[in-house]
Each structure stands twice: as C-alpha cells, then as structure tokens.
Design a protein around this nucleic acid. Structure first.
Lengths: 222, 222, 222, 222
DNA sequence: AATGAATGAGATTTCATTCAT
DNA sequence: AATGAATGAAATCTCATTCAT
C-alpha cells in the first residue's frame, strides 16, 4: 500500500524485504510472484535483481536474519534470570511479545521451511535447533529441580513452542486484549502446563528414556 | 490406445485424494502442480479432469471432508463425558490421536486455508469455528464450575488448539514414543495449563470483558 | 513459410525439427528464440514442450541424429572401394553431395558444437571423431602405398574436411553450376591436393612424428 | 566512490576489444552478454557505454578493423611476387600465419557475419569480397598461364579459403607441430590442389561459362 | 570514466485447463 | 476414463541500454 513509486537508492532493498515479508505471510512463498512483489515496491520485476539474486535467496535471507535476531534478543531477555520458573516466564514473555511485533517474520520462519532448498533448509534448521534447545534446557532444569513436571521434555518443548507461536495466526494490534493481557494469558497457560499437578488418569506409560532433545526430521520429499 | 498404464476404475479418485494430500502436505497447495499429482497417480494430467473439476475444488473437498469427519468423530469421542475435566481429557486424547493418524489432512486444513478462494474460505472457517467452539465451551464450563482457571478463554482456546495441532509437524510413526505416551504427555500439559494454579507474578491486568469466542479475522488480502 | 496453422498430431515434431534446423542455420542457436520457432510451426511457444524437453535437447538431437545418419551413409558410399584414390574420390563425392542436400544439418553440426552443454558436447565430439577417422584412414593408407603425399596426415584431414564443408556456406540449388560440376570441382581439388607433387620450396621442416589423428581439444571456456 | 576497481584510462577500450574477441569466439555474439564482457574487463556493464555505442557496433568494429588489417598485410605479403605459383604460395603462407596469430578475429569475421545488421553486413561483405578477389585473381592468372588447372575458379577460391580458414578451429600454440610445419603442410595441399593433374574419372561436365567471381548471396532471412 | 539502479522487452519454461480421439 | 496435444497466461530471470550521481 505504501507504494513509493519509482523507489530509488538504498531504500529499495528495505522496501523489498518488507513487502516480501508481508506477501509471503499472506500468500505463501510459492504463491507470491515476483511481479507482485515488484509492483508493491514500485519497480519493474526485472529490477528486483539489482537487489536480490534469486527468489529463493530472498526467502533464505529473510528467515535467517529473523532467526539470528530472535536468538540474540532471547539471550538478552534471559540474562540474569536464575531459577527455572523465572526463566520460563521470561521466555514466554519474550516469545509472545516478539511474535506480536514480528508476526510476519515468525510465521514465515515456521511455515516456509519446506520452501527452502536443501542446503538452505539445513542451515535454518540448525539455527532453529539452537532456539528450541534454549527452551528444552529450561524445562530440563526445572524438572531436575522438581519445580516442573512433564511427561516428556521433547514433547513439552515442541508443544509449548507450538502454543506460543500460534499467536501469529490470529493476533492483530488493536484487538480486544492488550499486549500485556495476552502475555499474561500465555504465562498462566505455560507455567501451569508444566507445574507438578493432576496426574493423567492413565497408567503404564512407557517413560521417555532420554531427555535430550532430538533433531526434528525434515518431512520426507520426493 | 487409451488405458495403457496407470490406475483406473473407481480407485482413481481415491488415489488422487491420497496423493494430493501428501503432495500438498509436503510442498504446499501452490507449489504442487497437477502434473506432479497426475504423475504420482500414474495418469496424464488431463485425465485428472475426469475426476476433479479444478485444483481449487480438490483442495476444498479435501479440507471440507476432513473437518466434517473431525467434527463427527469428536462428538462421538465426547459422548457421555460429564464433567469439564473428563471432557477436556477426552478432547485432548481424541485430537492428538486423530492428528497422529491423519497428519496430512490436519496440517493442510490448518495451513492451506489461505489458498482457498473467498467463498470456499468462508465455508471452511464456519466449520472450523464449530470445532473451536466445542473446546471453548468446555473451557467456559470448567471455569464457571471453578475447575479451570484461565486468563482469557479465547486465548486459551487458540493456544490449546495450536499446542495440540503442533503434533503434525513432527510426529512420525515408529518414533521414540508410543502413541499412548504422546497422548499422555499432551493430556498432562493441557490439563495442567488450565488448572487453577500459580498466579503469574503480574498484576493490574485488564480482564477480558467477554468470554464469547470471536471469529478470527481472515488475513487481509490484496 | 509453410506455416501449417494449428499443426496437429505426429507431424508437429517433424515441423519443429525442420523449422529448428532452418532457424538455427540462419540465426544461430543462441539467437533463435523458441517463440520464433513456435511461430514458424504455427503453435504457441509453450506447446513446444509437448514435443521437446528443452531447447538444448532439441539442438543435441538434431546434431546427433545428423551425424549418425552421416556416418551410416558414408559407410554405404565407401562400400566396395578398393584403392585409396577410389576411396578418397568416393568420400569427396559423398561428402559434397550430402552437404548440398543437407546443408542446414551439416552447417549446424559444425558451427554449433560450442552451444552444446559439456555432456552433450562430449558425445557429439566422439561421433564426429569417427567421421574424421574415416578420412584420416584413407589418407594414411594412400600415403603408405605411395599414392598420396602429404606433409601431415592430421593437418590434411582437417584441411580437407574444412574445404569440403565450406560448401554449405555458399551453395544454393539453382545456382550457376550443376551438382555434378560442383562435385567434380572438389574431386579435382582434393585428389590433386594429396597427389605426390611439387615440393614446397622450403627445407628443414620438422616432420610430424606421429600420423595418428589426435582428438581436437574443445575451445577453452570460462 | 567511482573508480574503485577495474581498469580505467585509455587501456579500457583495448581491454574491451580483447575480451570481446575472446568471448565472441568462445560463445558467439548472441550468446555473449555485455555483463559477461564487463565482468571480464572488471567494470560494470553500464560503464561499457563510455567506450562503445552498442553491442552491434562493437562487433562491427572488430570485424571491420580485422578485415582492413588483413587486406593491408596481404598486399604487403604479395609485394614483389611475380608468377602465380609464388603468389599463391605467399598467399597461403600469409593467410595461415595470420590465422594462427589472430584466430579469434579470423573466426569471428567468418562466423558472425550473420549477426551483423543489414547495413553493417553489406559493408563487411564488400571488404571480404576484396580479399577473395585477390585469391581469385591469382588462380585466374595461373590458369591463364597454364600453371594451374581447376574445374571452376569460383569454387576453387571458396574451397581454398575454407581450407585455410579451418585452421582457427583447431590451432593452438604449443601443439604438436611448429608454425612452419603447419604452413608447409598447407602450402603443399593448396599448391598441389590446383596443379594440373589427375583428371577426375568423370566426363561430360558442364564447364563453367564465366570465371568472374560472383558475390555470395547472404543467407535468406525472415 | 565509473557506478548502481532503473527500464522494458524478451528469454525459457511451467502452469491449469480444454478437447478431439 | 484415459491420452496427447493444444492453449494462453504467467512464472523466474536475463538482456541491452539509459542516466543521475
């Protein structure tokens, strides 16, 4: 909408990234055409290639830069937190807040991994693993200290991340709830979810032998 | 000349649906070409049109049929459950189990809504709303009876659904955990998450005025 | 010119090949666009892909099929010739005649080798080597029997082939000379060129140590 | 900001010509992009236009300058030669030597005529005609004096030129033969080829009525 | 004389869809 | 119900060329 017609100079690249994020968020990588993107930026589609090398590289750059930033800021948010509950609360608050601010980036980084070419995919999954391990470590520490209780750390990690990341499918600024309320709602859910508590009314569960977090496999391709 | 190779007879439609589910799951709707799909089935792409009317209709049918089936089976799973905790446990068990069995369908029904044309989109969102309302109602009942505690029912509904649906991004049969273990892990997480419990260490939260579940807006399009 | 509008069925492939030969002959492979080619055939450019897999494959097929045919017919033309002079005369007559009939194919097979991708290039050069070796063998035999005299067999082979192949840059049916006259002119030139005869008025020439024909190197690429 | 890397000053034009010759030789005019050329020279493609006016003009200049130089040097090489055989030997020696030194220029001047726009094409063909006429005149003189025997002077002219020009498709310095040996090999072939000699074993050939050399037609275009 | 960014045309290739057979 | 060949639009990407700086 902010069509800076005949966009020029070093601002063009930034405009491409911003428009790219929005279009991929809305339509998906495969469904976004470079013509659309160029039109959004206000240039001819061929002119995009003065700034990007391929469509695939654009996606890769967007995702990689996002995850790097995410990791950097997460580590800052966790700084100084001592006990597992504080860490977990900080993790949730950071994650939710960040996702409300950068919902395009976050959504894309989760949903468009399958659009990455193998080499790029490997690189991103490695980065993502680092982020997941931060949460897994917090949970493991809490379990070890008896503060938390989960059936399986890996499953809990994935589940909590899915829960938190779900925000960017429905959050829109100016909605019914304030950001703080949304953060609080998620803190309650997550903190409670790992609290020692009501045993499920089932028995003979094969307990997870390992609590190290395994790499998620890539969905099989043909 | 005709019918040299490839499947034929009434089995073809089923083969198309199955291959379509897998290909859309792997590559996404936009990135799946009908040539790919036809090749998977063992026919020419033109022959697909003896069975489907358009690519879009195929997606719509797959998603609609899935959600209808989901609702039907959910209602059966909830049959006879009386108190909110039992209902919630049944919901989780059903949802997780179903998602492990039909991960392609479930994933597509969540991730490819944006690929539906407006009319189809509306129809599906309406169906999905019915499913969401089942969970929202359980939570509301539990809160009313003092069994559950959440900051906001709508947020909790979306969060729990996101948590549960996350399974289909990583589940693979034959993995480290049995199905029952996975179900149990999720039951623990979800049941705990809404248990009356550790107050978040924040105050003055603007409480949600309404607990009716609002329709999620569709992401704005151009 | 023979634009069979809306060309259909199995004739299309033949039309593509014929038009492709002419257009590559006239403009060169790189300068021929598939739109041009399709227009010539009377179809849309996308429709070409019902018959060819890529532009490069079209070139490769045209060149390979031509060289195979050339070899086949050469061997037939040489059948039964006993002494080197008869063989050489037959070679010249065949080569010249063939080149007048198929000047497009011949020209392309010589001038567009550089447009072949490495793998295709290797395959064609191997085939071409077989053709060159036929002539080299005739010359070697003639030299051994004292009927011919050349300074270097490899150089003579390349030179004679260049001489003979030059025809397709200027020959046009209906010109000043009959085909027979053209053949006779070339027979005279080639037969004389290797006849024992006027020593060049130079001395101390480093004689060629080997008379085996070496593979021509591919022009270096970047 | 400007002039960070890459050649500059008056040497740039020479670098462009040299790189252009090599790239056209290797890939052909149509397949050489100005980006490639600029990269080779070490500048941006836009900067080429400080030195050339269009891609087409670059080709034209390269070809024209080459042919002019060729003519100039040929005339110097023929200076003082009296009888046809000496002239022909001098022609061959000059041509072969020159082609070994300037194989890029020679090859392009022969193979890229079709890439010239009509006006440029006419100009070059006129120049080339002058060169061809030098050889045709030598042959005619030799035939008139009874020193040479050919079936048709025009055909012989074209054939000998093709033979001699073939060198630049295979010559590479440092190969098996010395330059002198290569020259000698070609002198033998050419001098012998026009020597009165073995009548072809055919009869009733329609003799060429004219011995003036006709202009080669340009290949028909669309 | 060089850069970097733009243009507008055009390249090859793929797509969903149609239809006579 | 399947094929093979067609369409017309659209995809990504490259091209020669221009021009303000």
């Amino acid at each position: 909408m902010a069509r800076t017609i005949g966009s020029h100079g070093p601002k063009t690249m930034e405009a491409i990234r911003k428009a790219g994020l929005r279009l991929i968020f809305e339509h998906g990588y495969a469904a976004m055409s470079l013509r659309q993107l160029a039109a959004e930026v206000g240039i001819q589609s061929g002119s995009l290639y003065n700034h990007i090398s391929t469509k695939q590289e654009l996606l890769f750059d967007l995702v990689r830069d996002h995850i790097n930033e995410l990791l950097r800021q997460l580590d800052r948010a966790l700084l100084g937190k001592q006990n597992p509950a504080d860490k977990l609360r900080a993790f949730v608050a950071f994650h939710v807040t960040y996702h409300m601010t950068k919902k395009h980036e976050v959504f894309i980084a989760n949903s468009e991994l399958r659009s990455l070419e193998p080499k790029n995919y490997e690189a991103i999954v490695a980065l993502r693993g680092a982020y997941e391990r931060r949460l897994a470590a917090i949970l493991a520490e809490g379990v070890a200290e008896g503060e938390f209780e989960v059936v399986d750390i890996q499953v809990a990690t994935f589940a909590i991340l899915a829960l938190l990341t779900g925000i960017c499918t429905w959050y829109r600024p100016g909605g019914r709830l304030t950001k703080q309320a949304i953060v609080a709602a998620h803190e309650k859910l997550v903190l409670s979810s790992v609290a020692p508590g009501p045993a499920p009314d089932r028995t003979n569960i094969k307990r997870a032998p390992s609590r190290s977090i395994a790499a998620r496999g890539r969905p099989e391709r043909r």
